[in-house]
Computed example of a mutant assay.
Amino acid sequence: MKATIPSILLAFLLSACSSGPDLKPIFNGENLEGWVANREEIWTVADGVLTATNDPDQKGDILFTTKNDYRSFILELDFKFGEGRIDSGVFLRDNKEQIQIGESGSLKRDMTALPYIPGKGYPIQVETAQTVLEKTDWNTLRIEVNGSSYTTWLNGTEIMTYESETIVPRGPIGLQLHPKREMSISFRNILATELPE
């Protein structure tokens, strides 16, 4: 018994230290409450999963949180590739700074968990994500935005940190369905928390 109590205590302390900030759902798993889209018909919710499917016009869309004043925050979500050539991502505070999910239209290769910025392209290009990316199953993407710096993890593996000179100081979080693609992508367990500054 004496050996068991310290073991339990150690496990509890390790768990408490590794849990980090308390992430809370920002997607309720039932509908688009708390989010806004230009074209809601391409976003569907079933069994706790949010799926985006491009229509025949392939116009794409961005689903933004109605909360539009995120500053420093952690976002965590699960995603799963659907049909077609996947080009999606998570927008950070506006519709420009983005963490890519799937294939880059310009580079024609997967750039998941790396930043894309119009005018700069992909300022960091590493292959780390390709060693842990599950192309036929669910993946967990974690993004920590702290001021003008952001870091990504994919399935628990740290991918990169980038210091941006162009990111706006506050804004919403967005999920992208890229235009000019026949594709679908699913999301679930979308969690976030704001960080003190």
Rank of each mutant, 00 (worst) to 15 (best):
T157I: 09
L23V: 13
S164M: 10
R142I: 07
K135F: 09
Y70P: 05
D110I: 02
S15C: 10
F187S: 06
W35K: 06
I159R: 12
V36Q: 15
K24Q: 14
A192G: 12
E40F: 01
I26V: 14
G20S: 11
E194P: 04
F187P: 03
Q100F: 09
K2N: 12
F81Q: 06
W153G: 07
W43L: 02
Q100N: 11
I167P: 11
T136K: 13
F64C: 08
R142L: 06
L154R: 13
E197Y: 07
L9E: 01
L13G: 00
N31L: 02
D57R: 06
P118L: 12
G48A: 03
I185C: 00
T161F: 08
R181Q: 14
V168M: 12
T44V: 09
T66F: 09
P21A: 15
A37P: 13
E41N: 08
I101N: 03
E182I: 13
I86Y: 01
T4H: 13
L75D: 07
G82N: 01
S72P: 12
G102F: 03
N54Y: 00
D87Q: 11
T51G: 02
L191W: 02
I173D: 10
T157C: 08
A3E: 14
L50R: 01
G147R: 14
A46R: 15
V36N: 15
A129D: 05
D22W: 05
I62V: 15
I8D: 14
A16E: 13
D137T: 01
F79H: 05
P6I: 06
F187V: 03
G60K: 09
G174M: 08
L14F: 12
A37D: 04
D78C: 10
K96S: 13
E182H: 03
Q130T: 10
R39Y: 12
N155Y: 05
F187K: 01
P21Q: 15
F27N: 05
F73Y: 15
R85P: 04
W153A: 04
L14D: 06
R181D: 13
P196Q: 13
V132N: 11
L10M: 04
I167F: 04
I117Y: 05
R39W: 00
S72T: 13
G60H: 04
Q98A: 08
Y70R: 12
S7E: 10
P115A: 10
Q125N: 04
Y162W: 13
T151C: 10
V45S: 07
N68D: 15
N38R: 13
G82F: 02
Y150A: 02
F27H: 05
D110R: 02
T166M: 04
I167N: 05
E127L: 06
N189H: 14
F64Y: 12
Y162C: 10
M183W: 03
S104C: 02
D47P: 08
V126I: 14
N68S: 14
N68Y: 00
E134P: 00
V168F: 08
S106Y: 09
Y116A: 09
F64D: 05
